[in-house]
Simulated assay, not measured.
Amino acid sequence: MSEWKRKRFWDETSVAECDGGFQVLLDGRVLKTPAKSALILPTRAMAEAVAAEWAAQDGEIDPGSMPFTRSANAAIDKVRPQRAEVADMLADYGDSDLLCYRADAPQELADRQAAQWEPALDWAAETLGARLEAREGVMHRPQDPEGQARLRAHVHQLDPFQLAGFHDLVSLTGSLILGFAAARDWRDADTIWTLSRLDELWQEEQWGEDDEAQEAANIKRDAFLHAKKFFDIA
């Protein structure tokens, strides 16, 4: 038996200002989240992005084609009720940040890591007030607690919608610093994504591309670029 799929049930999609932000209307009815909360969005740009996804549905509704709707739902239903916990979880990436774990061999890879990753750590030290130190190898060594506290404070300043986007910027790269670098436009999003894949790209140079790995990387890249767009309009 084929799975039942919801079909388009409205004609007109619109955006309206409301108390607390903006909402999307389907034939005048307010769009709600899966948890039945009103989908009230912080900016008109986000509301228009969500509305455009609903307006584009034709016949069967395809949730996979609505990333802005999905992220907005997550911000309201998942992030907002546990905002502090989400912020703490993301801040914890700073103590084991991708950029801080360097190869001890081969020297060419270690040199490439230093050349490409150290500027991001320098930027974070100047902009975020936290100097993370690089280590050779993969064994965890704690970072300076005062610097970690400063990074944690920056994360806690983000609202639930920003945190929803920031979550993917950090988790997809494995780096709190690259997450901030993307959010604050240190470099363009594609450049930052490439920095996060330095080790994988090195392996590809040595052994060639793996089709399945490349497909997975492309999916993650698309998710990262979407997270940046979502953060920017939050």
Rank of each mutant, 00 (worst) to 15 (best):
11 D>K: 10
33 T>G: 03
37 S>N: 15
40 I>R: 00
47 A>V: 08
8 R>N: 09
38 A>N: 13
20 G>N: 11
17 E>C: 08
27 D>K: 02
31 L>N: 01
42 P>N: 04
48 E>W: 09
10 W>Y: 12
44 R>A: 02
31 L>P: 05
17 E>V: 04
9 F>Q: 08
5 K>I: 15
17 E>G: 03
31 L>S: 05
44 R>S: 01
27 D>M: 07
30 V>K: 02
38 A>K: 06
38 A>C: 15
34 P>N: 03
44 R>H: 07
52 A>Q: 10
24 V>F: 02
6 R>W: 15
7 K>M: 06
19 D>C: 10
41 L>F: 04
13 T>S: 01
8 R>M: 07
5 K>F: 15
10 W>G: 00
33 T>W: 04
36 K>C: 12
44 R>V: 06
49 A>P: 04
14 S>G: 11
51 A>W: 14
25 L>E: 09
17 E>Y: 14
40 I>T: 08
8 R>E: 03
21 G>A: 09
13 T>N: 03
19 D>H: 15
32 K>G: 10
11 D>W: 13
43 T>I: 02
49 A>I: 05
37 S>V: 15
7 K>F: 15
31 L>K: 04
25 L>I: 12
27 D>P: 06
15 V>T: 08
27 D>S: 06
43 T>E: 02
32 K>Y: 13
32 K>W: 13
25 L>R: 03
